[in-house]
Design a protein around this nucleic acid. Structure first.
Lengths: 191, 191
DNA sequence: GAGGGCACTTAATTTAGGTTAAGAAAAAAA
DNA sequence: TTTTTTTCTTAACCTAAATTAAGTGCCCTC
């Protein structure tokens, strides 16, 4: 069974026909690292489900500084939620960090599937709720924890990412400069 | 028509019977300012819809510093999403800031209503999506904007709140100390 | 295998924002 | 009204993290 169907089946149960219908409305593609799937200023047309590889979404401030909103590894969904909902140009980039196989679900097909398989409303509601909870926690962490504590949390939450993505991107995710991150890391190692 | 039904009707349409069923599963109460509706460490049993007044959700760090997650005014929903979903003890407080009339929807009744009126899955999906988008924007703002810029955004987004809640709570929301907020404010006024 | 970018490090300097403390003003309570 | 508590301000001092800059190692690709 595909990773995507497994993912859905964690929260709702689909009949074999529904599974086939769902899959028939998606497209699976492979992308090389460094591919930009969505550019800032574009309208986001798809939700992306990661079969393998790593993606990230980020924005760029004043044309200089990148800030990472999310990483997405195997079994995660990613997209520009704002742009996807509003169908207006967003300010996020979505980029492939590690060669990836991606299931793409277009906004239109998603709406079609909501109509055909109303249970999917439930599935995406739960998915969105979980994102919201994670996001709220990260926001509170950014308000109340030091960079060191945020790094510790990141390391515990995404142990595999630590090995796989350049550390300047982890710095960006936890909200510090690469230089400060480097200093902090060597301080932690010295302990 | 009640504010709550208006709110729901923005996203889905309910028959009069469904409206009555929904309302029959809620309880409306009034609360005085300073009432704590939910304490840290408790399991959140209700979603709260604000008919009038102002509420806030916040956590307390190291028993000292408060950090505000959300304000909720007329027509807004509020709750501890983490605790509500998981039915585990959360770390948020929910407090009434200004005398309020609140519609309370228990977790059990919400689940009951999902079963009776599946359209509601859609409604709460959309509600959660909108929260997520707002939350993501706030997170990115916290990563990339200065305190002054965050305050400017807050002021534009919630002009009414500025008058109504103590400024130390706005400080807490944008993520600075009351002292720094005061300094910043007088600097902005001098311009 | 030489050269050109990246990613990472280190260090000096600067700054945004925190801390501490104390008084003034305002609001709530009595 | 008076008292008490909370909120707001101001100011001196402190610190986490940013900025700037220079140097090192490393993977590309030509």
């Amino acid at each position: 069974m595909s990773l995507l169907i497994q993912n859905i089946s964690k929260h709702i149960s689909l009949t074999p026909e529904e599974q086939l219908l769902f899959l028939s409305k998606t497209e699976t593609h492979t992308f090389k690292a460094k591919t930009i799937l969505l550019n800032s200023g574009q309208i986001c047309k798809h939700s992306y489900f990661v079969n393998s590889g790593i993606l990230r979404s980020f924005n760029i401030n004043d044309n200089i500084v990148e800030h990472i909103l999310t990483f997405a590894c195997e079994g995660w969904w990613i997209g520009d939620m704002y742009s996807l909902i509003s169908q207006k140009p967003g300010n996020l980039f979505i980029e492939v960090l590690e060669d990836a196989e991606i299931v793409m679900l277009s906004k239109e097909n998603q709406d079609f599937l909501y109509a055909e398989i109303p249970k999917l409303e439930r599935f995406f509601r739960i998915l969105t709720e979980n994102s919201l909870v994670a996001n709220q926690e990260r926001l509170m962490d950014n308000l109340s924890l030091s960079a060191e504590e945020r790094f510790e949390k990141f390391r515990r939450k995404y142990p595999t990412l630590l090995q796989k993505v350049p550390q300047k991107q982890i710095a960006s995710y936890i909200g510090v400069t690469p230089e400060f991150f480097s200093k902090m890391k060597s301080k932690l190692l010295r302990k």
